[in-house]
Design a binder for these strands. Structure first.
Lengths: 199, 199
DNA sequence: GCGATTTCTTACCATACATCAATGCGGAGG
DNA sequence: CCTCCGCATTGATGTATGGTAAGAAATCGC
């Protein structure tokens, strides 16, 4: 399984000097997680951003009826933060949990903010991350408003063709907003229609 | 109907000097809109951010079956941008249209970016706007994944108690992701259960 | 390699919401 | 004041998806 280095991720995205990287690395801590371990639980305040170096992580909430709803998958090379919890210093509504054994870099949010103030290209990289998050969430809202379960599943496997090979179907169903049984039925109908996944 | 001045909005949110305000105002243009007029259409690239001074505006998409889906209501004092279109310079998937006669300030996105680079407090205000947008969208996704039509309607009128008085029910239904008929039935059932809106 | 979990499928029935069509209603304009 | 016209309601019926339960298949731990 391919591993991603955070510094590679950064230097390929922003124009940041060696000294700045040094400063940032002091604010980082790498942790190893077993499948099921939590990085954040509902009610906690999230003080870090996360960079997944290896393995996979999910962000989800649990509703009043005890059902889980998946907000985000994050595999190697993904950067994730809990925007509300970090920025507004609110207790989180979400859990962040390892779906596989994983190694994750914790980056102190305060350091990110400091570096953003000092380093314009870091700030604009930060802004870019926020914008792509908005874009993604907007697309998801529109899709939930307009598309059927089947359409959402097709869009999902088109966007992340490798994920169904790696995560349990029940997790994908939770992301799509349907039950695992319904997803199973959707897949059966697609098979009967001779649907072939784009290679 | 109360009117909001953009400068008041800015100075009450960020620490910005008189000269900076002057610069920004040169990049602004106020337009009057009749009900139904468009600020942006699908396929266009959005070069501005919008500040609603008077009236009300909606952002929505039209799906493959011709149905409208409402992403956002924006009344007086609301600031709205089309993140994807502006930031990634992509054609917009959304329409932005006046729901009532309105006056809207157009702010050139390039000027916002320039001011952000020069003026740290402007940059952090910008960042705050992005974060609250993420928070809002995240909440909406979670709600669409977990809550019934009735629950979503109750959450809606709790969050924006004044909107149902001002916009047609069909628009609210579109925001909630249900048909106008279903919303009518939801309201009927709430009335039969003797539901009273919180005052 | 084998039993034990976990995950996936299938069948049957229940429910929420959509669709279609008819009717009611209330405000804007002649 | 009356007539439209847009909007909301209601009823009958359709459909997508949910819930439950059972069994099949895959995966994991040893």
């Amino acid at each position: 399984m391919k591993e991603f280095e955070f510094t590679t991720f950064l230097t390929s995205n922003i124009d940041i000097g060696e000294d700045e990287l040094q400063k940032l690395s002091h604010a980082c801590r790498s942790v190893s997680l077993k499948k099921g371990d939590f990085l954040l639980r509902e009610g906690e305040t999230c003080k870090h951003a996360f960079f997944v170096e290896k393995g996979m992580v999910r962000e989800y909430s649990i509703d009043a009826k005890g059902r889980e709803h998946l907000l985000l998958f994050a595999a190697e090379g993904w950067f994730l933060t809990n925007a509300e919890s970090v920025y507004f210093d609110l207790p989180s509504d979400y859990f962040i949990q390892a779906m596989e054994d994983a190694r994750v870099l914790l980056i102190e949010q305060t350091s990110i903010n400091r570096l953003s103030e000092q380093h314009p290209s870091f700030a604009s990289f930060n802004t870019r991350l926020l914008h792509s998050r908005i874009l993604h969430l907007q697309t998801r809202v529109t899709q939930l408003l307009s598309a059927s379960a089947e359409e959402r599943y097709l869009a999902f496997i088109k966007a992340w063709p490798y994920l169904p090979l790696r995560v349990p179907q029940a997790q994908i169903a939770s992301y799509l907003g349907i039950t695992p049984e319904s997803l199973s039925r959707v897949r059966k109908e697609l098979a009967e229609k001779n649907y072939r996944p784009p290679k």
